[in-house]
């Protein structure tokens, strides 16, 4: 089992969700995050106070998948989140030690939503 963590553009969330649902990846968690990834900085001015906004709002998607779902999940994110400009984001893949489904007490492969 793998934990796939993707950091993507805010405005790409809908496209990515649609792509994931298309390949039947249905169990996921989405959070709003801020971060820095080499995008162009924004300049804002408020009554003479000029600031450089170094952090950009991003979306983090976390998905626990069984091994044979790993490749198609990654491919669909790679395709749907891409614009080609700096700031498209990253995908991190890490091993999972243990998974439980709270409702039933099922473990591991039985417990991740795309089995």
């Amino acid at each position: 089992m793998k934990l796939i963590t993707a950091i993507i553009r805010k405005e790409k969330l809908n496209d990515v969700l649609e792509a994931l649902f298309d390949v039947e990846v249905q169990g996921l968690t989405v959070s709003k995050v801020i971060g820095h990834g080499g995008e162009a900085e924004k300049i804002e001015t408020y009554r003479g106070t000029t600031v450089k906004i170094g952090l950009t709002e991003k979306i983090k998607i976390e998905i626990g998948v069984s091994d044979h779902f790993e490749e198609r999940t990654i491919q669909s994110i790679l395709k749907s989140a891409k614009t080609g400009e700096v700031g498209d984001g990253k995908i991190f893949v890490s091993p999972i030690e243990k998974v439980y489904r709270i409702r039933t007490g099922e473990e591991d492969e039985e417990a991740v939503t795309p089995r």
């Binding site: 162009a40 900085e41 924004k42 300049i43 804002e44 000029t50 600031v51 450089k52 906004i53 952090l55």
Partner: peptide, 28 residues
């Protein structure tokens, strides 16, 4: 160059000495 709802997260104050860099960025 303003936002309606901002908490100032990640906003770095720009001082006089950076002003040239700011000008370039603003034009970008």
């Amino acid at each position: 160059g303003e936002e309606a709802y901002t908490e100032g997260e990640g906003a770095l104050l720009i001082l006089e000495r950076d002003s040239l860099a700011v000008k370039n960025l603003a034009e970008q």
